[in-house]
């Protein structure tokens, strides 16, 4: 993988993870209440907008990335997002990482590393 493709891949992981975490932070706020009031609460705070901004940027970065690498390879390398989000969820939202989840994370990471090494 050339330098630009690698930079775009890295940016994609960071933006996807950042976006998901921001949406989780927005949606998980217990002070938000219910129904329309909940949406008003969320829209008046930064997290939901951070999430939207991340996703818009990710859209651009992802098109650029896929145009530089073979599609099958790009999609396989993009699987790293699953790993990044689970690990971030563990540290930021105290989500459980059971042995089975850790096994899954290691397998996906190994698969991405194998594909990446061959790219």
């Amino acid at each position: 993988m050339q330098g630009l493709a690698f930079a775009l891949w890295l940016a994609n992981v960071l933006l996807d993870t950042g976006g998901q975490l921001a949406f989780k932070a927005a949606a998980g706020d217990e002070r938000a209440g219910d129904g329309l009031a909940r949406w008003r609460y969320m829209l008046a705070r930064p997290w939901i907008w951070v999430g939207i901004a991340c996703y818009v940027l990710e859209f651009v970065v992802w098109i650029a990335f896929l145009s530089l690498v073979p599609l099958s390879e790009g999609v396989l390398l993009g699987s790293i997002n699953i790993v990044a989000i689970m690990i971030a969820g563990r540290f930021l939202f105290r989500e459980r990482l059971s042995p089975l989840r850790v096994t899954g994370i290691l397998l996906v990471a190994a698969g991405v590393a194998i594909v990446g090494a061959g790219a």
Binding site: S72, E73, L76, S79, I82, M86, L100, R101, T103, G104, I105, L106, L107, V108, A109, A110, G111, V112, A113, I114, V115, A117, G118
Partner: peptide
């Protein structure tokens, strides 16, 4: 390489 990587990724997704 891609096939081996894909098998590992799919196995990982199955575990998750």
């Amino acid at each position: 390489t891609q096939i081996v990587g894909a098998i590992a990724i799919v196995a990982g997704i199955a575990c998750l």
